[in-house]
């Protein structure tokens, strides 16, 4: 119990941020028409590509003579970039179709 309270005290801001982000994520999505399910999933998919930031940091931190870590980081950055660029581009292509036609 004491350990839990101590952890909470040490990471209080993080815990707040976590909880509010969860609530925000739920609130933002809760009223969405079925038509937009696919584009929305695709858009969210692109957003979690933010993990690319982590991959870049990994590559930064790897030692210059540690080729194993460098290659792993390299592939991670390629994957992450694919996720981000492909994700946003494919979502944009889908949503392009939703242009309102006024006739």
């Amino acid at each position: 119990m004491e350990a839990i309270l101590q952890f909470l005290h040490d990471n209080l801001l993080m815990v707040y941020l976590l909880i509010f982000s969860i609530l925000l994520g739920i609130e933002v999505i809760s009223k969405v028409p079925a038509v937009l399910h696919t584009p929305l999933m695709s858009g969210a998919n692109a957003i979690h590509g933010v993990v690319l930031v982590g991959a870049i940091i990994v590559l930064f931190q790897a030692r210059a003579d540690d080729y194993w870590s460098l290659s792993v980081g390299f592939v991670a950055v390629v994957f992450g970039t694919l996720n981000v660029v492909g994700g946003f581009a494919v979502t944009d292509r889908m949503l392009e179709m939703f242009k309102k036609k006024k006739k």
């Binding site: 993080m14 976590l18 982000s21 925000l24 994520g25 739920i26 933002v28 999505i29 969210a44 979690h48």
Partner: peptide
């Protein structure tokens, strides 16, 4: 953290 949690939460609702 924020981007990931947002997607995690909204993805679950979706």
């Amino acid at each position: 953290l924020v981007g990931g949690i947002l997607v995690g939460a909204s993805g679950s609702i979706l």
